[in-house]
Design a binder for these strands. Structure first.
Length: 492
RNA sequence: CUGCCCGUAGCUCAGCUGGAUAGAGCAAUGGUUUUCUAAACCAUCGGUCAGGGGUUCGAGUCCCUUCGGGCAGGCCA
């Protein structure tokens, strides 16, 4: 952290004064970068299939995505936040049929949840609201296709309501919940994208080799519409449509990202789980072909969250109903401490989330440490005001760097690297640097706080210099905590 | 079998484009409030950066390899 040498000795005289003057002149804009040059960026995140409530692991996605969005704004992009509602696949059919089984159970009618369906208790709740809305209206209807088309919107929206409640608790707002189903209903993006790729001779009709690593009974090769991923050095081509002629997941993704390009986004970030990373290689190549730029698409993969309860790992399974709901955890530990815990480690590190420790309100929760540093500075500045030690104007006659102690200079040095830290984090889409920086700065502040006699009438210039630095530090702490989505309390 | 991710102090984790004696918090031990928030500070203890080889003036960081752990590998979702 200290790096080579003693940077504070290398500081040119007045460098700190100039820096603080800039900060004072425009507190909100300090650290604002121009990397994005006002270009349109889209951050797609969460995007969980609307088939039920979300668990604690999805919270990591939400927190990371929001922090990336804030970073890109800081970097000078015009940022759009989007949730892709995957309501076009077969899982929605299973969801509706599972819901319908629960619905029939409410009337003591014969019912069975499909083999690959959803048996979680939340569907009982949703079935009850369906019954409340429509009564016995659907009991006589047994045709599955009709059921799916009639109840699709209700089922999806009910599940989305669960998800949106958690999103709201986390303080996140999406510009749009983008319905994949609606895109296919209302536009011809799929055909357009495929046509464009075909014109580049990247789409052809052909057969794929049997899948490796797994034996599939009765495997029958069939001719499909394929994207020529092998042209980009990937091991296999990728199917755009399945044998029934419907778009595959890959095909839907290609169409969706083509839509993003048509909407004018030149920077497309997507936060996805590590288990999805196999999919983004061919997708990134398809996007590269569609827009002609290899740097438009930025997938950000994050590792899974392992949850410990009483020291034992909790197995996460929607089907078994053993998921740890995000809403439960948020209710227990609060959004601030959850967000900071999720942001504190880099996304490629598997995160162990200990429920017992997350509930504790002590140093196991670093968010308190950082917030406390902010509150302490606020307290000093309050006291100064009460004692009539109001800050004189920030200028050469009232600011003397040579009066600053080593602890204060450590803080000053951290303030001055704030913009470069932000740039680094924005360039690499690594928001965990924000949390790391916040903790570093808080550590320096606590040491500083304990080392000083803050309000010293006998030494007005030294006191004023300290207070100027404290005010600036408080501002930076508040800013970086805000970037993490965490509050910066004046008192604790 | 193939691909991706990970392996840093007893535990949970940092470590910017390779740069000087590897850093925090928790845990352990001992100190610090006649002044401004002790949810804090200070000191001590604790690491052959999984093992081995290579590139380099210099490697936790880059390359190869071994071991160990995780996740993927339909036209599924």
């Amino acid at each position: 952290m200290a790096g080579p040498g003693f940077i504070n000795l290398q500081l040119k005289p007045l460098a700190l004064l100039n820096e603080l003057s800039q900060l004072r002149a425009n507190p909100a804009g300090y650290g604002q970068l121009t990397l994005g040059k006002g270009q349109k960026a889209i951050v797609e995140f969460v995007s969980i299939n609307p088939t039920g409530p979300i668990h604690v692991g999805h919270g990591r996605n939400a927190v990371f995505g929001e922090a990336i969005a804030k970073l890109l704004e800081k970097a000078g992009y015009e940022v759009w936040r989007e949730y892709l509602v995957n309501d076009a696949g077969n899982q929605i059919r299973l969801l509706v049929l599972s819901l319908y089984a629960r619905y029939r159970e409410l009337f003591d009618e014969e019912a069975s949840i499909p083999a690959d369906g959803y048996s979680g208790a939340y569907l009982i709740e949703i079935a009850e609201s369906l019954k409340a809305r429509d009564g016995a209206k659907w009991l006589a209807l047994r045709d599955e296709d009709t059921l799916v088309s009639e109840l699709r919107a209700f089922a999806v929206n009910a599940c989305l309501d669960f998800i949106k409640a958690d999103i709201t608790t986390l303080g996140i707002t999406f510009n749009r919940y983008f319905s994949e189903f609606a895109m296919h209903q209302e536009t011809s993006r799929m055909a357009e994208a495929v046509g464009k790729l075909r014109a580049m001779e990247l789409v052809y009709e052909g057969t794929l080799p049997p899948p490796k690593g797994k034996d599939i009974a009765n495997y029958q090769p069939v001719e499909l519409t394929l994207f020529k991923a092998t042209a980009f050095g990937l091991p296999e081509d990728q199917a755009l449509f399945n044998r029934r002629g419907q778009p595959t997941y890959f095909g839907q993704d290609v169409a969706y990202h083509y839509d993003k390009l048509q909407r004018g986004f030149t920077m497309m970030a997507t936060v996805i789980g590590i288990d999805q990373t196999g999919a983004f290689k061919p997708l990134s190549k398809a996007i590269e072909a569609l827009c002609g730029r290899p740097d438009a698409y930025h997938p950000v993969a994050y590792e899974m969250v392992k949850v410990l309860r009483n020291g034992e790992p909790v197995k996460l399974s929607k089907r078994a109903g053993t998921i740890v709901l995000l809403s439960d955890v948020l209710a227990e530990v609060g959004p601030d401490s959850f967000r900071f815990a999720m942001l504190g480690v880099k996304p490629t590190t598997p995160l162990v989330f200990d429920l017992a420790k997350a509930v504790e309100k002590n140093m196991e929760n670093p968010v308190f440490y950082a917030q406390y540093a902010h509150a302490r500075l606020a307290s000093v500045l309050r006291q100064a005001g009460g004692l009539g030690l109001a800050l004189p104007p920030l200028q050469l006659s009232t600011f003397d760097e040579t009066t600053l102690t080593p602890a204060a200079l450590t803080v000053a040095r951290l303030l001055m690297i704030y913009p470069s830290m932000l740039e680094q984090a924005a360039r690499s889409l690594e928001p965990h640097r924000l949390a790391t920086y916040a903790t570093q700065l808080a550590t320096a502040v606590h040491s500083w706080y304990a080392a000083e006699k803050w309000l010293d009438d006998a030494q007005p210039t030294a006191t004023a210099t300290r207070l100027h630095l404290a005010l600036a530090t408080q501002g930076i702490l508040a800013d970086v905590l805000g970037m993490c989505g965490v509050s910066a309390p004046e008192t604790m």
